Amino acid sequence: MSDNYQMEGSQDPQTSPGSEPDKGDQDKDKDQKSGLMEKIQQLGQTNVPQMSNDSNIHCLTIVGQIEGHMQLPPQNKTTKYEHVIPQLVAIEQNPKIEGVLVVLNTVGGDVEAGLAISEMLASLSKPSVSIVLGGGHSIGVPIAVSCDYSFIAGTATMTIHPVRLTGLVIGVPQTFEYLDKMQERVVNFVTKHSNITEDDFKDLMFAKGNLTRDIGTNVVGHDAVNYGLIDGVGGVGEAIKKLNELISQNGGYKEEGMIQ
C-alpha cells in the first residue's frame, strides 16, 4: 500500500517531465546567445537603443576612406559608393523617409566617387542635414556642404588641399590639364553649395606653411563657419532639430528618430 501511494502521490525525479530539458528552450537559449554574440562582435556592446519603425529620418554615415573604382585593402575602413548610391535612390523613392541625416568622419578618398555622392545628396527632393564629427577632409568637404544645412562639431577638422594623384603619373601637359579640370569641379561644387567665395576657397586650398611639407589648410570647428564653408557649429541634437524644422517646412510631420 505504501509503495502504491508513493507512486501515485509523487514522481520519481529521474522520470519527472520538469527535470528533462525542453528542446524549445534550448533552441531559444541558443538564439539568444548567438544574437548576443553578434551584437558584441559588430557593436562592441550587448544592449543598443532600438530604432523606431515609424521614424521619418534616415541616417547615412560616411566614414573612413571613400572608395573609388579600385578596391582598398581589407584593413581599411571604407565607404563604398556602390553601397551609398542605391541607398540614396531608395531614400528618394521611400515615402516614409522625409529627411536624411548625413554623419561624416572621413579622411577623403576618390574624387569622382565623392563628387557622385555629393551630387546625389544635393539633388534629393527631401531635406538633408550633414554633421562633421572628427573630420571631413579632402573630398569629404563637398559631401558636407551638399546638404541643405551643415553642422560641424567644435573639435572637428576639415582639410582643404589641391587634388592629388597616386600611382603612375605621365609627366605631360595633358595630365596637368586633367588635374586642373578635376579640381575646378570640386571648387565649383563647394562654392555653389556653401557661403564661401571661390577666391577664399582657393586661398585655403593653396596656402603654404599650414600643413607640414605640403600646401593646404586645416580648418577647425568655428573657423569653418567663419569662412562660410559650414552653416553652424553643433552636434547630433542640433542636427536632428534642424532636420525636423526643414521637414516641417517641407510639409512633412515632425517626429524625431532615425532609420538605419
Rank of each mutant, 00 (worst) to 15 (best):
Q11H: 15
D12C: 11
P13C: 14
Q14Y: 13
S16P: 07
P17T: 07
G24D: 10
Q26A: 15
K33N: 10
M37N: 14
E38M: 07
L43Q: 11
T46L: 08
N47K: 13
V48Y: 15
N53P: 11
H58D: 02
C59Q: 15
Q75E: 15
Q75P: 12
Q75G: 11
E82P: 02
E82D: 14
E82R: 07
I85H: 01
V111H: 00
G114W: 00
G114F: 00
I117H: 02
E119T: 08
S128F: 05
G135A: 10
S150D: 06
G154E: 10
G154H: 04
T155E: 14
T159N: 06
I160D: 00
I160E: 00
H161S: 07
P162Q: 04
L165A: 13
L165V: 14
G167A: 04
E177P: 05
L179H: 12
Q183H: 14
Q183I: 02
R185E: 07
T191H: 09
N195V: 03
D199I: 06
M205F: 06
N210R: 10
N210K: 14
G216L: 03
H222R: 15
G228W: 06
G232D: 14
V233W: 06
A239C: 09
K241N: 14
I247W: 02
I259F: 09
